[in-house]
């Protein structure tokens, strides 16, 4: 009986304030779409880092003949220097470096001629124009700095380079984008909270006769406030469902069907990731609406 009564009140409240209800639905829709977009961007960054960082290496370039670098003043790296380096890597960088692959200048030349059979810009190059290098696969790609500290400046080392640096600009852009989305999401969420509390206040005001009678006849706070809480929650959850739907459609058509078709070598977020984010969006909607209406009601429908 009481459940039915409360649901009836909720329905009446939503209908009576239809335009405000629609506004709450739309604002939560937009704000949670931004929240979801920020979350998906982060997921995308994680995916790319996971994929790419596994393949990237730290390359230790050994001094070639006639290098202009100060580190290579001693001339081309000797076999002895190279062995020294390998020993250092095996001892001092034990546990950091997973695997070492040696690329001699002959290997480098083969790889080069394969790619540029006619020489570089028409100039034929020889094996001696190449340099040897050590390719290190790290246990944790984030530990590049440790490797750099240990190896830079050792005899025979021209430079230590992290292949990840190539991706940095891309991740920088993606991170900035996700920050932007999160920033917009925060602004929209604040708007949503204000709008929900205004709507609840309006709803409480338009039903002040009912609530005052409820108080007089001794209805409990739950019975008086629950319809308002539910109104806010229903509108906000509806908004979050729209946001999830919007993200699903967006990911499906923009990423899975279009971007993945034209740039196929990247592992993209998919609708599965949206489903993974979805419960959090619904939770955010619930917390926001219940929280803001509870605070509002404490002021406006006190016993």
């Amino acid at each position: 009986m009481r459940g039915q009564f409360i649901l009836g009140e909720v329905g009446a409240g939503l209908r009576r304030n239809l335009s405000m209800t629609v506004a709450v639905v739309l604002v939560t829709f937009v704000s949670l779409t931004f929240v979801g977009a920020a979350a998906l961007l982060q997921l995308q960054i994680d995916k790319l880092q996971g994929d790419w960082y596994e393949q990237v290496e730290v390359t230790v370039y050994l001094c070639p003949q006639d290098s202009p670098q100060a580190a290579c003043a001693g001339g081309e790296a000797t076999q002895e220097q190279q062995e020294d380096l390998e020993r250092v890597i095996a001892t001092e960088l034990d546990g950091v470096v997973e695997e070492v692959r040696v690329e001699s200048k002959e290997d480098a030349f083969d790889a080069f001629t394969q790619r540029y059979p006619d020489g570089y810009l028409g100039t034929p190059l020889t094996v001696d124009d190449m340099q040897s290098s050590l390719h290190l696969t790290l246990v944790d790609p984030e530990e590049y700095e440790v490797v750099n500290d240990v190896l830079t400046g050792r005899p025979g080392v021209e430079s230590v380079e992290d292949d990840r640096a190539i991706f940095e600009p891309l991740f920088l852009v993606l991170n900035r984008l996700s920050l932007l989305a999160a920033g917009l999401a925060v602004v929209m969420l604040v708007t949503a909270v204000l709008l929900i509390s205004t709507t609840i206040r309006l709803s409480a005001f338009s039903r002040r006769r009912e609530t005052s009678i409820m108080r007089l006849v001794g209805a409990s706070n739950t019975v008086i406030q629950l319809p308002f809480l539910l109104e806010g929650a229903i509108a906000a959850v509806l908004g979050s469902l729209l946001a999830i739907g919007g993200l699903l459609v967006g990911v499906r058509y923009l990423i899975t069907d279009w971007l993945a078709g034209s740039v196929p070598w990247v592992n993209y977020v998919d609708t599965g990731d949206v489903i993974q984010v979805a419960p959090f969006l619904i939770l955010i909607a619930l917390v926001l609406s219940v929280g803001s209406s509870y605070l509002t009601l404490r002021r406006y429908t006190r016993v």
Partner: peptide, 24 residues
């Protein structure tokens, strides 16, 4: 009086019992 204008006489009186969760 403080009656609810959009409810009938019956509903106005029943309202006091409904909000207390009385059975139909």
């Amino acid at each position: 009086f403080r009656l609810l204008p959009n409810k009938t006489v019956y509903e106005n009186v029943a309202f006091a019992l409904q909000v207390l969760g009385r059975r139909r």
